[in-house]
Amino acid sequence: MRKLLALLGVLLAIHVAFLFVRPAGAALPATADAVDVGIVFDLGGRGDKSFNDGAYLGAERAMRELGARVRFVEPGEGSDREAGLRLLAAEGMDLVIGVGFIFTDDLSQLALEYPNVAFAGVDFAVGVDSTGAVIQPPKNLAALKFREEQGSFLVGALAALVGGSKKVGFVGGMDSPLIHKFEAGYRAGAMHVCPDCEVIAQYAGVTPEAFRNPGRGKELALSQFQSGVNVIYHASGSTGLGVFEAARTLKKLGIGVDADQYNEAPGYVLSSMVKGVDAAVFDAIKRVKEQRFVGGIYQFGLAENGVGYVYDARNKALIPDSVRTRLEALRAEIIAGRITVPSTR
């Protein structure tokens, strides 16, 4: 007992001594004219190789090129999302960004409470009222949405042109409207360049767990490849790692999603449908800096370079020049509005 009390005394003495230590360069220098940006990540946090990392890249670029001061908050549990946004808004940030559709409710509420702060939500889920009309977000809230179906259209065409077997495959994660959008675009793209092609679409499950099941992904991919499919596009989170695994085993091809996934199986990744979360975040910060930020729904499609497919030195060998030309022509037609890509099945 007495020993513990003595220990406690010693610990407190050390602690108090530490309180007076002040390393050089501690605390951020205040710059008056810089844009202050706060970003709250989704629970997955950084390192997901998808939208959290994308948002981080965009913010980093804004720090470099626009001199923005960015603060990041990583929430721990449900109530931390609102708390994190509120903390940043209350500190008078110029722009507060929530990364992930899960922030939808929290952002809508806070945008009303802090009308002088600009808000942005990546993948913000825009609601519809009972008549089916879109409910506009508050004036100071930008919903950053992506036309994943347009990018999927191009990789669908790519799969049909490169596959050469009249059969292309699709592996989705959770069977849900969000992923149906990918399937719809992919299907339309494949059918556009090859009307008598068959698109085999399968889903890994009906729960969010379906985005984290590489075993199931491999199983589905193997059976598709064995039925004559040569190229599979996945929109299934880490379940897709199983798709690449199957492609590597059978020397077939997979198409990645969200980010360039070439490194997951070099040589067996035909391309990736990339989503420009970084560009969208950078763009939002830039608008705030230039004082031309307005709320509303922002759609990032092919025209805005918000979505696209990877074509670089690494996968060039897999994509013939004639196919590349055809895809670029399709891209131009979509941008010009001559092709409308469906977003539902």
């Binding site: 513990l4 406690l8 610990l11 602690h15 230590v21 390393p23």
Partner: peptide, 26 residues
């Protein structure tokens, strides 16, 4: 007493971590 000592240890460990991060514990 045990939780209080634990708290004391945590405070000191926290001080060290904060210093390692180049910030002022206070």
């Amino acid at each position: 007493i045990a939780p209080l000592v634990a708290l004391g240890i945590a405070l000191v460990v926290g001080d060290l971590l904060i210093l390692a991060y180049g910030q002022a514990p206070g």
